[in-house]
Design a protein around this nucleic acid. Structure first.
Length: 508
RNA sequence: GGUCGCGUGGCCGAGUGGUUAGGCAGAGGUCUGCAAAACCUCCUACAGCGGUUCAAAUCCGCUCGCGACCUCCA
């Protein structure tokens, strides 16, 4: 995919990323070009993947895709958290989320983790999200996590208490600033911290566990120098990102809700263990709301991907396809909140189909003959193709990029329907238009056609019906012709008679 | 309560000191046997009130409304 023209455009529009840490848009300079290390916080596999998972995954998939498109060699690490996160209502028992579910369902903890990992991967695949280069699990990296804890203890930023190890935030804060990413002030944290049982072990309420001693009844536990127990909440990402990407690495992503305490913890652990920032650029995608309300289980507006794709949810008027969801998300910038509603999804569905129809139209376009150049039009199309790079490089602005693609689509359709002469642009411009449009829609934004079934057989069946109707039309038997068209329409297939005399069809 | 952010046309959503975002919906037109699609044209907004400026939706202040984080969370 690394074509010379990409390099040229790339040089013209170097990538700028809004770095959550500095709160500024910064020129992206990888440490070891052309290699880029990308880390994204993946799911905790104790439940069905939902819309929030999709947003994070889609956004960083586009980052991954665009970097690769420009010729970077990207190692993309997205973890699977299969251990270690405490659940609210059982926090005082130190019980593990995954373990809790296992007991309820009488399954092995790893069986649960595996099942939801499979489900997650399945839905990511439906969303056309490229698999990461490495998908490490927390449970598979216990020694690495123990190693990080040892380093932190050695450096004096952690203490052992009754077989558990806690990060000493106060000691850390004397040497490094704490709370930079999330804008937290230590004193405020202190006064606002909720008092939980089992916290009397900690020196301060905001100290966090690096290792937690297990209760005898716990099933998921590992040996360590301190106790048989489980690793802390934020440790896996530090251990696995440093292992596979080095320290520091280039780019770390995740949902905004992870800024505190998760990513703040990662920064502290990394500096505490290795004395340096874990990563140069932090990217955070914003949250979703549903009909203007926060998506949460207690509000009953929590939508899983399966519910969205099947339409089986009280808030959904119908099902929406994976590509509709992907399109919908890409029409907004990752840094903005987006609001879900049936109207918004319906609009996205239509927009997506228009984009796909244009893509198919473009593939049918043939440039033949001699140019009779329309300089203004030629320049306009050139500028629009260039703007795709410009906008993507400007903090991955998929919304603006899509706007340019739609404007190019107007030209593509006009060429195809002979509303504009194709030969009014140069052959070079035509090929640039074609490659840019196809590449950005398919490779960069990852939007693809969703037709199902055996397309070849459907085509041949459809051709049969189209021929029959054509004959009826030639005989002015419009009743028959219209019946064929209307009956197909009832079945969700739309016929279009084109100027050229050809009839094409689309699915609704 | 603390911290941060947002309020854009009928809906969704970019943008952010002077110039068309885009999608969906709606109106008119071209094309068509009729449609559909496509194309053309129109609908041209920035919560309210003040202030800065030659110029503000964009900067500042206040008011109102909303959201996120502070606790597992994408």
């Amino acid at each position: 995919m690394t074509q010379p023209e990409h390099r040229e455009k790339f040089q013209q529009f170097p990538i700028h990323i809004f770095n959550s840490l500095s709160r500024n848009k910064e020129l992206f300079t990888p440490l070891n070009p052309p290699r880029v290390g990308l880390y994204n916080c993946g799911p905790t596999v104790y439940g069905d993947p939902h819309l929030g998972h999709a947003r994070a995954a889609v956004n960083f998939d586009v980052v991954f895709r665009y970097l690769q498109y420009l010729g970077y060699k990207v190692r993309y690490v997205r973890n699977i958290t299969d251990v270690g996160h405490l659940e609210d209502e059982v926090a005082e028992t130190g019980e593990d989320k995954i373990e809790k579910k296992a007991k309820l369902q009488q399954l092995e903890p790893m069986e649960i983790a595996q099942r939801y990992t499979n489900t997650y991967r399945h839905f990511m695949h439906l969303l056309n999200i490229l698999p990461p280069s490495i998908e490490p699990t927390a449970s598979g990296h216990i020694p690495e996590q123990i190693y990080v804890i040892k380093k932190i203890i050695e450096n004096g930023f952690a203490y052992v208490m009754n077989g558990s190890v806690y990060f000493d935030v106060q000691a850390y804060a004397e040497k490094y600033p704490y709370g930079e990413l999330s804008g937290k002030v230590l004193e405020e944290l202190q006064s606002n911290s909720r008092v939980l049982e089992g916290q009397e072990e900690k020196k301060s309420a905001f100290d966090f566990a690096l290792w937690k001693k297990a209760k005898p009844e716990h099933i998921m536990k590992w040996d360590s120098p301190w106790s048989v127990g489980v690793p802390g909440w934020h440790l896996e990402c530090t251990a696995m990102s440093s292992k596979y990407l080095g320290i520091p690495f280039d780019l770390h992503g995740g949902g905004m809700d992870l800024k505190f305490p998760h990513h703040e913890g990662e920064i502290a652990q990394s500096k505490g263990a290795f004395g340096c920032e874990p990563v140069n650029y932090w990217m955070h995608n914003n949250m979703l709301t549903i009909n203007g309300q926060k998506m949460s289980k207690s509000l009953g507006n929590f939508i899983t991907l399966e519910e969205l794709f099947t339409g089986k949810h009280a808030l959904l008027e119908k099902e929406y396809s994976p590509m509709t969801l992907r399109f919908f998300m890409l029409q907004a910038h990752y840094g903005s909140q987006i609001d879900f509603s049936n109207e918004a999804l319906l609009a996205a569905e239509k927009g997506y189909k228009r984009l796909m129809n244009t893509l198919q139209t473009l593939e049918k376009l043939q440039y033949e003959g001699t140019t009779s150049l329309d300089t203004a039009l030629d320049a306009e199309i050139n500028a629009l193709t260039t703007s795709c790079y410009e906008y993507m490089s400007d903090d991955f602005n998929t919304a603006k990029t899509m706007a340019s693609l739609f404007e190019l689509g107007v030209k593509i359709n006009a060429f195809y329907h002979q509303q504009l002469p194709l030969l009014s642009i140069s052959s070079e411009t035509f090929h640039l238009l074609k490659s840019t449009y196809i590449d950005f829609v398919q490779d960069v934004l990852g939007l693809e056609n969703e037709e199902s079934g055996d397309q070849h057989q459907i085509d041949s069946l459809m051709q049969l019906l189209i021929d029959m109707r054509q004959r009826a039309r030639q005989n002015k038997d419009f009743a028959t012709a219209d019946k064929i068209r209307d009956d197909l329409k009832e079945r969700g297939i739309h016929l279009k008679d084109e100027k050229s005399g050809n009839t094409t069809y689309t699915f609704s």
